Amino acid sequence: MSNISITSLFPFRRLKFIGSEDIDFEQGTGTVVELRPDLRFAPICSSCKTKGVGKHSNHQRFLRDLSLGPHKTLIHLHYRKIKCPHCGQIVVEELDIAEPGGPRVTRRLAVYIQELCKLMTVKDVAEHLKTVKEIDKQGLKQEFAHIDYNGLRYLAVDEIPYGKHHRYLTTVIDFETGRIVWVGKDRILPPGCHCL
């Protein structure tokens, strides 16, 4: 019987290994590893590294990590937002695994990608790590699936050309703030929108 533990493959300080599960991605099999903050450590601010005075809220996100052999690896990360006495703000706690608010990859995968880019073209790296794009796309879908339409008073509609052969994106923008409210392919209007 083997004494090898998967825990040693995730030596992130301030995080505790909870478990793993094999799943099927669109492009093959993979492993999801669940990590939570280790409660033995007091949370610290990711900006100034000061010890936080209390937990504000719990959050979670998925990060792409280095593959485990042929298995693509996702980390299901649980993290906290804390009150920082030095910054005077509510911030994400420092966990050494990824940049707060950065790309949805671990720091060690980001270093791996940077090293590959020194040896290969960006296009080749993107092809090699294509699920990074997929995971990011899924994360964006989750983050922006529900758009807040409250407070909209004035809308602006515009067309943006992209690619070749006169292809367009139609955008609907909050005229007062510049926030994009809706984007659609071609020259179409969002559902329920009527032109006069």
Rank of each mutant, 00 (worst) to 15 (best):
C84I: 00
L196Q: 01
F175G: 06
L152K: 12
H165E: 12
Y112T: 13
I23S: 02
L140Y: 11
V181T: 04
R80Q: 15
E143I: 09
I135H: 06
P191Y: 12
S57V: 07
I44E: 06
V111P: 01
V181L: 07
H56F: 15
T177G: 05
D174F: 00
K130A: 10
A145L: 14
R64D: 04
H59L: 14
F25V: 07
M1E: 00
K123A: 12
V172D: 02
E93I: 06
K118Y: 05
S2W: 05
L155V: 13
C117S: 13
K123S: 15
V132Y: 00
G52H: 07
K185T: 14
G19I: 05
L63K: 12
Y168E: 03
G52Q: 03
Y112M: 10
D158N: 13
V122I: 11
H128M: 15
I180W: 11
L116F: 09
D24W: 08
L66A: 08
I44A: 05
G102P: 00
K72C: 06
I160R: 09
E94M: 06
R64V: 12
R13D: 07
C195I: 15
R36G: 01
P103K: 02
K141Q: 14
P11S: 09
T131K: 02
Y162R: 08
T31R: 15
T170F: 02
R36I: 11
V132H: 00
Y168M: 08
D96E: 05
P37G: 06
L77C: 06
I188A: 08
T171P: 03
P190H: 10
T31C: 07
F175L: 05
K81Q: 12
S47H: 13
C84G: 06
H86V: 05
Y149H: 14
N58D: 14
G163V: 07
S8Y: 10
K141C: 03
C48I: 08
L15Y: 09
G139I: 01
K137W: 15
T171L: 14
G139K: 00
G28M: 01
D174G: 01
A98W: 11
K133N: 08
H128T: 15
I18F: 08
L189A: 10
Y79F: 15
A110G: 02
G163W: 11
L63T: 03
S2I: 00
I4P: 00
L35E: 07
R36M: 08
V92Q: 11
M120H: 15
I18A: 07
I90W: 01
E176L: 11
H194I: 07
A98Q: 03
C195L: 12
F144R: 13
G54K: 07
Q89T: 10
I4R: 13
E143P: 00
E143S: 14
